[in-house]
Amino acid sequence: MTALLQVKGLTKAFNSVKAVNGLDFAIEEGHCVALLGPNGAGKTTTIRMITGLLKPTAGQMRFHAAANIGDERAIIGYLPQSPAFYNWMTGLEYVVYAGRLCGLTSQMAGNRAMELLERVGLTGAAKRRIGTYSGGMKQRLGLAQALVHQPKLLVMDEPVSALDPVGRREVLELLRELKRETTVLFSTHVLHDAEDLCDDVIIIRNGQIALQGAISSIRSDHRRPIIELQLERDDRSEKWLAGYAERIRCSLSHSSEAGLIHEIQLGDGHARFTVKEVDEARQLLLEELAQARVKVRKLEAGYSSLEDLFMKVVAQ
């Protein structure tokens, strides 16, 4: 596996504020990578530096495939968060224009544009002015114009955030196909999209990398056994839960050595225990519950999701 893009110490400072502070990562050829982080983490700034729209304050980016091309922009396709076109052009005209700017002949650009518009489902609207397009159509047009020169790296900034559920699903379906053909990097604040589509994630927080790696390895490295408990909302059960939580918190803070239960999160009538070992913890819990004659509604043993990890990493 070769890295298509190698980023080292990428930094961008706006006046004294460092929006991006020393990012190191690599994008492997053929992978789909998500740049994940809460709003304001520096995702857009990073993406804009990769596309060359913003000059980094420090750090370097190396495109391996660009060595013999010279202009790295020729291998990148870019779709911004809310792409703006020329509203007086038709969709077809715009994609042809984009193709010609990327060095295609007018005939090649025309063929390629029709092919791409069909692919993104805009054939019917190809001869309409872009000014009349809906948000979802503009996003799909943006995808078509980004792909017109068959880029080696497709870079997208929040490709689905501004869309309604239907438009969102359409674009995600397209991405699922595209990632088989080219290397994809996209930013998102929705973990679910990243989990759905990507091989690798880079989680950034305050301009720094909080966690990165393949999704599968992150999942196995960081997953913890948990038990979820839901109770009826009667007095007796609620009182028991409050007391039990208190007892566990006491023992957690007193003994340095962790017991069976590492952590407890209390909600409205339900509790979530992060445990050391599921079987023993479940046994213990069931005994407690039976003894106190608590009305259990649901008891579930499982593993923590990526969402829990994301929340934990981002909230730190």
Binding site: T51, G52, L53, D71, R73, A74, I76, Y78, P80, S82, P83, A84, F85, Y86, A98, L101, C102, G103, G142, Q145, H149
Partner: peptide, 13 residues
Amino acid sequence: NSGAASLILVKPV
């Protein structure tokens, strides 16, 4: 201001 320029200037022009 609209962002149309950035979509053009990321292309090799």
